[in-house]
Amino acid sequence: MPETTFIIKRYNPEKGVFYTSEYKVPYESDTTILSGLIYIKDYLDRTLSFRYSCRMASCGSCGMVVNKKPTLVCRTLIESVKKPIYIEPLYNFPIIKDLVVDIDIFLDKLKFVKSYIIREKEEDLDKEYIVKPEQLDLIKHSSSCINCMLCYAACPVFGSDEEFIGPAALAILYRYLHDPRDQAKSERIKIASLKNSAYMCSMVGQCTVVCPKGVDPSFHIQRLKVISTLNNLFS
């Protein structure tokens, strides 16, 4: 079985020091980087910390930076990347330990964009709302975000100012703004118009490039700019 080297950037929070560890990992044509990390944890070094769960690119736990690129390691084959493999924690977030970062700031942003349907009154439970397939298509991509945080790690604006609401939360804002069941359009446009919201985006577009689920936050954010601008002009 071929073998490769994982070079992992580590952080020891109790001593406050960064260091690197190197491990030899055997792999086959279908071995993922995540399987390699689990191999290290099981057999080589039990002190290495990282998050993972579903191993099928749905839960969004295992975002890391692989060879400088924000990556979901469960869906990335060892064979497909340059070796030795250099793994770092996600950029732009505080590091808790090794490859584990603190993403609480995103949870706050999610709440801030009001990530839920707002209506004057909820309908009775015997009545479904009519939503045409083409209306559903409008939110197809923006509702596919798994909160893996790769886009935040790739975003230079968020990297320089954490006040920025950021790609995933803005995509989700766009998603609720375009949901035909929602009745809080003006409230949402107000959020989109804030200083730290859509306008702060400098259109680098890396968020869309790194997204593992085909969400296009860059497009959604530019749309939010247009919607906000038109709204401000005509109101």
Binding site: C54, S58, C59
Partner: peptide, 11 residues
């Protein structure tokens, strides 16, 4: 033990 959106319902 995980952020709720990581729960296995997701799969």
């Amino acid at each position: 033990k995980v952020y709720p959106m990581r729960s296995h319902t997701v799969s």
